[in-house]
Amino acid sequence: MRTTVNRVLFGLIGLVLLVVGLSVLVGSLDLQRHWDFRMPHWWPFTGPKDVLLAAHDRTRYRSDGWWWPVVIAALAVLVLASLWWLLAQTRTRRLRQLRIDSGDGSSALLRGRAVERVLTAESQAYDGVEWAGARLVTRHGNPEARLLLGLEPFANPREVVDGLDDDVVEHARTSAGLDVLPTEARLRAVRHRARRVT
């Protein structure tokens, strides 16, 4: 789930928390008086004795018995949703090990990173591929390969994908003793800088 959207959200949340934390720190240490600057008039923390909610704000809805339970419940849901989202970022679907049949009735463990390194090396050696990256993930309990390929300008994408499927992916599948190895390939064109010829 580590997508660009998640990274942007992480950045924005971190920026907001940093600004709020520094502002609270400035107010609590009374730095604006010591360093002779002013906070915006709407900011609640202007000195070490200030609080987030004034007495008027805390007691305004006291007659409404539903107000504070709703606020506390909403904050609790927000905290739980934030914790769930944070845990989802740390979870990885990367496949660490593959159990393969060694042919003598027992099994052996094959490291996922070893398969990734072989996929990367064989993909980079393929004609038309300048660079490659591979990742082995698990989806619904089954291994899948994800390839990221930088193609040379002369490469035909269909031929490269078909060739990798027939050679590289098939070799990895049979080596790991898998019936199938679904593979997703993402292709990028490699751009070279123009060189002046004299």
Rank of each mutant, 00 (worst) to 15 (best):
A121L: 10
R196M: 11
R96S: 14
G163H: 11
E122M: 13
T120G: 03
A132T: 03
E184Q: 10
D101L: 04
T92F: 12
A176G: 08
D179R: 11
D179W: 06
W131D: 12
L164V: 06
L136D: 04
D166W: 15
Q89S: 01
E144W: 13
R193M: 07
E170Y: 08
V161Y: 07
R193Q: 09
L110R: 04
V160M: 06
T138Y: 11
P143Q: 11
E152A: 14
S106T: 08
R188F: 12
R94K: 14
R186E: 11
W131N: 09
V160A: 02
D104P: 01
S107V: 02
N142G: 10
S123G: 05
Q97W: 14
A108C: 04
D104N: 13
R117I: 06
N156Q: 14
R111T: 07
Y126A: 13
G133C: 05
Y126E: 02
G103R: 01
G105Q: 03
G163T: 08
V129F: 01
S82C: 09
L187D: 02
G150N: 03
P157K: 06
I100C: 06
N142Q: 14
R91E: 15
A145S: 14
R195H: 07
G177H: 03
L119Q: 04
L178P: 04
R93P: 08
S107A: 03
A172F: 04
S175W: 12
L148E: 12
H140T: 15
Q89G: 04
E122L: 13
R193N: 05
R93V: 11
G112M: 12
G133A: 15
S106E: 09
E122S: 07
V168G: 00
T174P: 03
A132K: 02
R91V: 12
E122I: 01
R111W: 05
R113F: 12
V180A: 14
H171G: 03
D167N: 15
R173H: 07
L151T: 03
L119K: 02
G133H: 07
A176Q: 01
L149Y: 02
R196H: 12
T92S: 15
R191Y: 03
D165R: 15
V129Q: 02
